[in-house]
């Protein structure tokens, strides 16, 4: 999404920039009298408006043209601004059923994402995490954001994610994760929650 908006912006900024630059250069060349030698334009001392402006703008086709140009320019500007609004990258529910299943089996990727977040949060050094799943149930793609404590062992956390969290997700989906994107952020906050240790006790006989 962001990439396509970036390309759109660069393209249109480039096109408009070039047009504006060319227009400005032509105006300067004409004002300096340099264009007259090349393109046989009026001399620098000549009037800009050679016709009666009142008469020109009184014509109905000129008014219609101005109205059309105004609408086109305004709509293009509005559409360009609307294109900047980030849109959510929607993912359809994962489907686990087949023809022979005897019913549909659906799971929203957000449900799996919450489980993945919960799993990541158990890794030492992880303060918080956010996960998003894309793709399909047979070809899942994962995008993770993990916020780590500034004293965390980053490589150990990554190893934990890559060797435990992602394979666990793959086991739940019964399909390996085909693509993973991990964004690490660092925070001064401490890890919340700690670890639960089951009490085993001692039985005296």
């Amino acid at each position: 999404m962001k990439r396509s908006v970036g390309t759109l912006n660069r393209t249109w900024l480039g096109i408009l920039g070039f047009l504006v630059l060319m227009t400005g250069s032509i105006v300067i060349l004409q004002a300096g009298g340099m264009l007259q030698g090349i393109m046989n334009t009026p001399p620098a001392g000549a009037r800009v408006a050679t016709a009666d402006l009142h008469a020109v703008f009184a014509q109905s086709w000129v008014q219609a043209a101005l109205l059309t140009i105004g609408v086109i320019v305004g709509v293009l500007g509005l559409l360009w601004m609307i294109a900047q609004i980030p849109r959510p990258n929607k993912v359809a529910a994962y489907r686990f059923h087949t023809e022979e299943s005897g019913g549909r089996t659906l799971c929203d990727p957000a449900v799996l994402a919450r489980a993945v977040e919960e799993h990541i949060n158990t890794i030492p050094g992880v303060v918080s995490s956010a996960a998003k799943l894309y793709g399909t149930a047979r070809s899942p793609e994962v995008s993770l954001k993990a916020t780590l404590n500034d004293r965390a062992d980053i490589q150990a956390v990554l190893l934990g994610i890559q060797s435990t969290v992602l394979p666990t997700l793959g086991a739940a989906l019964e399909a390996p994760v085909t693509s993973s994107r991990i964004q690490i952020d660092i925070s001064g906050k401490d890890q919340f929650g700690g670890t639960l240790h089951p009490s085993t006790g001692t039985v005296l006989q």
Partner: peptide, 11 residues
């Protein structure tokens, strides 16, 4: 509709 609809995007 984005080309990346339903797929993860580069970070």
């Amino acid at each position: 509709m984005s080309l990346n609809e339903g797929h993860s995007t580069p970070l």
